[in-house]
Design a protein around this nucleic acid. Sequence first.
RNA 1: GUUUUCGUGUGCUAGG
Length: 242
Amino acid sequence: LVTYNTMVNGYCRAGRIDDARRLIDDMPFAPDTFTFNPLIRALCVRGRVPDALAVFDDMLQRGCSPSVVTYSILLGATCKASGYRQAMVLLDEMRAKGCEPDIVTYNVLINAMCNEGDVDEALTVLRSLPSRGCKTDAVTYTPVLKSLCGSERWKEAEELLAEMAINKCAPDEVTFNTIITSLCRKGLVDRAVKVVDDMSEHGCIPGIVTYSSILDGLSNEGRVDDAVELLRRLRSYGCKPD
RNA sequence: GUUUUCGUGUGCUAGG
C-alpha cells in the first residue's frame, strides 16, 4: 500500500491527476487517507475545490476516515477560495468528528487571517494555542510578523519576536527574510541590513531571497553601490547570486 | 531525536 501511495503521490505532484485516479482504481489494496490526500491537494492547488470535495465524499463512502491532514488541506483551499470565515465551518466539522486540529491546521488558519487583514484575530488564535496543547513554531509566527510589519506595527512585531524567544521558538530563515522584506518595502533598508546580522547570529544563512529583497530596497533608493557592497558580504557568507 | 507515503509561512523577474 505504501508503494502505491508513493506512486499516486508522484502522479499528483506531476499534475497527472487522471493517471493518479486510474492507479487508485486499479490498485490491489483499499486506498487509505495517505492515498487520497495528495489527490485532494492536487485538485485544490489547481482551484478545483469542488472536485476535491467530491473525492472527499468518495473516500467517506468507501469507509476511509479523513485525517487531520485531509482537513488541513481542505481548510487551506477553502480559505483561499472563500475566505477563512467560510473555512471555519470545516474546523467545526472536524472537531465534531473527533479529529483534533493540530499546529499545521492552525497555521493554515492564522495565515489566512493575516492575508485577509485580520491580524488581531490571528493573534487571538495564536495566543490560544498553548491551551489547546499545540506547540507554536516559526511558521505560526511568520505570517503574523509579516502582517504586523506590513501595517508598520513595528513595536508589536518586536514584542512578538521577543515572545518567540521566551517560548523557545527560534525564528528561522523564512522569518528573517519576511522581516527583512517588510523593512525594505517600507524604505527601512538600513534597519533590514542590521537584521541580516541578527540572522547570522541565529545560525541562519542569508540567501538569495535575503539578497534580492535588500537589493530591491536599495535600488528603489538609488543606492546601487551599497547593493554591490552587500553582495560582497553575502558572498562571504557563502551565498551564490543567481 | 522516528517521514517508508500526505498538509502550513519568505524575495526578485514575467504576466495580469
